[in-house]
Computed example of a mutant assay.
Amino acid sequence: MMNAHVPALAGGGQVIAIVPQTFEETMRVARAVVASGLAPAALIGKKTGDDAAAAVAVCIMSGAELGLKPMVSLRSFTVINGKPALYGDGLINVVRQSGKVAFLKTGYEMRDGQMVGYCHAKRSDTGEESRVEFTQAQAERAGLWDDRPTIRKQVWENNQKVWKDGQPNDAPWYKFRERMIAWRAAGYCLRELFGDVLGGIRDEFEAREIADADEMRDITPAERPAPPKPPVPPAPPATKTIEAELPVDEQSTESEFDLGSFLEELETSLATAKDSASAAEIWNDYDAPAILESNGHADMIDTAYAMRDRAYAKLETLNGG
């Protein structure tokens, strides 16, 4: 017999995201996410309890600064070397959601047999427009391009990891090079044109490359594994004096360039800027991209741009922009 007191189901209700307004509310949402098992493993790692909830809360707050709802933030962010980064095309999505985009187009094209990624965008509020390209040649110089179908890597055998040759190459720059080269162009373009929106946030691939570079730089000579010494053939006499015969301004100065000190001085100088104009003047005086590339550190140009973007974002906040 049907129960006459069961209320009828109503349709047509509007779905509204739960957006916490205070830190306490954020922690409540974070604890619920952890308890439900929906917290991404890349975010919380081996953390449990309030430690895991704190990691989720920081992710939610990082996303809120970019205009993302809590659950969207959890799907969009990862943590690399202790820093938040956006998955895949997250940078593009954040910029589109800002309401400051007149148009944005990204992709790749073939030019003289070489792949060229591009991003063309325009701001709707200021009218600024930019088109940035990232070429296959640039990717090769940066050590990103990878055309090896098989590589040597660690695999599990007999419950232990061993190095093995001839393994399928699953690196993003081999499997998804069209998307990667377009995203790299987008990263440069959007961080320059929409620095106030992104606040220095990178996509996961750039963040991982920077983390790998930092890790290699942090290894002391005593800790760095020594490469096997191949047989050295006798060198022609001319090779012993070739650098000494060069003009002084053409001799190698790589050992004289201190990367850490340069980046530290750049960040300190940008922090002294009173407004965006003075920050731009400091940035131009340092000419970081050219200095880094000429000293063999092109892979750190993105780090310098991130410092500049953070300085701009901080100044805009301080000046009420």
Rank of each mutant, 00 (worst) to 15 (best):
N319L: 13
R148W: 10
E254D: 06
E204D: 12
P247S: 05
K69I: 01
T253Q: 06
E204I: 05
P20I: 11
G67H: 00
L91A: 02
V116S: 03
P225H: 00
I44R: 08
K47N: 13
W183R: 15
V155E: 03
D285A: 13
L259I: 00
D212V: 02
E223N: 04
A271I: 09
A298T: 06
I44Q: 10
A85S: 01
I44H: 11
P168H: 09
E109V: 06
T26K: 08
R131K: 15
E215A: 12
I242R: 14
Q114P: 00
A41C: 02
I242E: 03
G296N: 11
A102S: 13
L270A: 10
Y108P: 01
G37K: 15
M61A: 13
E243H: 08
K47S: 15
G117N: 10
I210P: 01
A64R: 15
D112C: 11
E223C: 01
I80A: 06
T241Y: 11
A142Y: 06
F176E: 13
R202V: 03
G321E: 12
A235L: 12
V248H: 08
A211Y: 09
W156V: 05
H5T: 11
P230S: 03
E25P: 02
A52S: 03
D299S: 08
A8Y: 14
A211F: 10
D51N: 03
G200L: 11
A42M: 04
Q114N: 00
Y188I: 10
N3D: 15
S252V: 04
G260V: 10
A30F: 07
A182Q: 08
M2S: 13
P230V: 03
S130T: 05
D51M: 01
G12C: 05
V33G: 03
I219P: 04
G49F: 10
E206K: 15
K105N: 13
A277D: 14
W163S: 01
R184I: 05
L190T: 06
A213H: 07
S62M: 09
T106P: 00
A17L: 07
L266G: 02
E316L: 14
I181P: 00
Q251K: 15
I242F: 09
M216N: 13
L259V: 00
L270F: 04
I92V: 15
S130V: 02
L38C: 07
D302C: 01
L246G: 05
D214C: 12
G45T: 11
A213E: 06
V248K: 15
D196T: 00
D147P: 00
K161F: 14
T253P: 00
A39E: 11
F205P: 01
E209P: 01
L198I: 00
G321C: 06
T135V: 06
E133M: 10
T272P: 05
G199Q: 14
Y312K: 06
N169A: 03
G143H: 04
E133L: 08
S269G: 09
P149G: 09
L86W: 05
A85I: 00
A85V: 02
T135H: 05
E178H: 15
D203Y: 13
R141K: 13
I242N: 04
A280E: 14
M180P: 00
E256H: 07
L9R: 15
R131H: 12
F205C: 02
E250R: 15
R28T: 07
M216V: 13
K229G: 03
A313S: 11
S294K: 09
V15N: 11
G49Y: 12
K164R: 15
V94R: 04
H120L: 08
Y305R: 14
P228D: 07
D299H: 09
G11H: 14
C119H: 09
P168Y: 04
